[in-house]
């Protein structure tokens, strides 16, 4: 029988590995439900805390992402009143439906994430700079517009066009077997 200290150390290692490996997926799931980066990051922080606290309840070998997303879902639901002043907030039934759809699409979304890196490489340099600046931590559309020398309105339009290009490119990659 292993000493308790070793079991605890192994458990910590496993927690770090799982949290690290799946952080993006958990964040993406939350972001789908709250569609605001700051709110999503806040919920992710709180979700991480709960995952750490409740990790002893996680059964090794089961789906960690599904377990973590359940925690994230309830954390988001609990925090809902906090975001009541947000500009856009969907009613809870719709959030539930979106959560269900997002959970069912997890594997496809993983593939899309991988394919996206190839599509980003295909973008013209100016477009890639604009879209990556837009999504840099602490940045946004005004900053991306400023750095690229575009007017704000032009930046919004360009970003809309680039996102559509990327969506189409990713779908094409998946359809043609670019990603297994």
């Amino acid at each position: 029988m292993e000493p308790p200290g070793n079991i605890e150390t192994e458990s910590r290692k496993q927690l770090v590995a799982l949290l690290t490996q799946h952080q993006r997926r958990i964040f993406a799931y939350i972001y789908t439900l709250v569609h605001d980066r700051t709110d999503a990051e806040d919920i992710l922080q709180e979700t991480n805390l709960i995952i750490c606290e409740k990790f002893h309840e996680f059964e090794p070998g089961t789906d960690f992402v599904a377990w973590a997303c359940q925690i994230a879902y309830w954390r988001g639901r609990y925090a809902r009143p906090k975001f009541a002043r947000a500009k856009v907030i969907f009613h809870q039934e719709l959030v539930d439906a979106l959560a269900q759809t997002a959970a069912e699409m997890q594997h496809e979304l993983d593939d899309r994430h991988v394919a996206l890196s190839r599509c980003l490489e295909k973008l013209p340099h100016r477009d890639r700079e604009l879209v990556l600046t837009r999504y840099e931590p602490g940045s946004g559309v005004p900053e991306a517009a400023r750095r690229s020398g575009r007017s704000l309105e032009a930046a919004y339009k360009a970003l809309g066009r680039i996102r559509k290009l990327l969506l189409d490119c990713v779908s094409h990659q998946l359809a043609t077997g670019g990603v297994s």
Partner: peptide
């Protein structure tokens, strides 16, 4: 479509970060 679109933004957050 919505999930793919918003997930694209989440992925772009990751790549930009």
């Amino acid at each position: 479509f919505y999930v793919r679109h918003v997930d694209l933004s989440a992925s772009l957050c990751a790549y930009a970060g």
